[in-house]
Design a protein around this nucleic acid. Structure first.
Lengths: 232, 232
DNA sequence: GCAAAAGTGTTTGGATTACACCCATGC
DNA sequence: GCATGGGTGTAATCCAAACACTTTTGC
């Protein structure tokens, strides 16, 4: 057998990672954008992404890239789809793999660095046109995120550490685009391991809600010992 | 900002696709393997995979590669995980993206071609050690497949076109590793659009089962008009 | 007291489970 | 007739939806 081109010519591609970082704020899911200060697409909005070094493993590279461009550290990234349209990058054949994460916007401080000129959290329904095929990547990872919200307790990565049950309900209502009954929602989440805190909401002009925390430790135990499956 | 290596050095990677083709036979899910007649890993079992051409889009390349090595044509491939460990390929930095498919083994004729010396359908619990990280790729796509069996009517891609309900039940019992009650299974699938054929099993030494066919057309309609969601 | 949201209980209908039973075919 | 699996009915149970109601806070 033989290839239609010289074997060496196959080793002429580049590979990048693009990170869609999602957060929840003001009742809406936001995605982290950077303004590019480098060609191509200089001056345009994009999600943080860059080329992978030759000796670098993908998950490590994803974190490095995110840190270099936005100063965010130790974010837990999940792999998404891979995009390889031959024309997606004007400088050559660059295949890219999407990574996505869910974070607490208020606990972090995203700051532009390296060739990122500016960062911004854009609400999902107001995301501007993005460089490359990044609009498509954001859509695709957002679908991944919504699927993951159903099967993994990652809503707690988006919510504040201490949250009211109603905030959790609103997050799911927003993500699934449905309305839920308060009483039924509370019954449904009875099986989720939550720590009932002795704190209440402050500065609300109605009865303050009790605050809860996700019980990561008990969750792990339940998964191991009783084969617990998170399901929403 | 600047890179730690010359920009050109980034364009030195290669990119491949690896196809995990799953079929169902003798009550077990099988995966299609080829024996490699090319270095590296010559003589070892692997899943069909090869390098992508510079101007080739990924889904097209996946089908081309599968056809070249196994003569299988027009298989509907789904993207899986991407594997990019720097040491996964002995000849350089080759990142690979997994594609997987579900097929009817008996309706196809897989034949070794190009640098594939032999093909074989291996039952999932007897898959030998595979070249590269292909064992990991098979595991990962098999998980993708099982997840997909829950949310998409792809069991009908594995079953014969005309099948008995018990065959369908056995497929799910095998995939989910559970036992199901016959009567309850039949009630559960009442909402799935199946065409009740006027045929029966032949050559069985017990009461022959009626045969069914998946009603693709009605399924599409139901998805569109009544927002139907397949769920098993 | 009133507005607003927190938080709980009750009823109902539909789905899931367990299990028993009858049916059609080959030998 | 008997073995084998095909195919169906029923009662008990669980679960989710709908909805009404009480509670606690600020003003």
């Amino acid at each position: 057998m033989s290839y239609k081109i010289k074997f060496d010519r196959f080793f002429s591609y580049s590979f990048s990672l693009d990170c869609a970082i999602f957060g929840y704020k003001d009742g809406e899911i936001h995605v982290l954008l950077i303004k590019r200060a480098m060609e191509p697409y200089s001056g345009e909005w994009a999600i943080p992404g860059d080329l992978v070094y030759p000796d670098e493993d993908l998950p490590i590279a994803a974190n490095r890239i995110l840190t270099e461009l936005t100063k965010l550290k130790n974010v837990e990234l999940h792999q998404g789809q891979t995009f390889g349209n031959p024309n997606r990058h004007p400088q050559g054949r660059v295949i890219t793999c999407a990574y996505f994460a869910l974070v607490r916007i208020d606990d972090l401080q995203a700051e532009a660095d390296s060739w990122a000129e500016e960062v911004m959290w854009a609400p999902m329904n107001e995301v501007p046109n993005l460089a490359f095929d990044h609009s498509e990547i954001v859509e695709s990872t957002y679908e991944d995120l919504k699927r993951m919200l159903q099967r993994e307790p990652i809503c707690f990565d988006l919510l504040p550490e201490k949250f009211a049950l109603n905030e959790m309900q609103q997050l799911y209502e927003y993500a699934y685009n449905v309305e839920m009954d308060k009483a039924n929602f509370r019954k449904k989440i009875k099986s989720i391991p939550l720590i009932h805190l002795d704190e209440k909401q402050q500065n609300v002009k109605h009865r303050p809600a009790k605050l809860f925390k996700f019980d990561t430790e008990r969750y792990r135990q339940m998964v191991e010992t009783e084969n617990y499956m998170f399901r929403m």
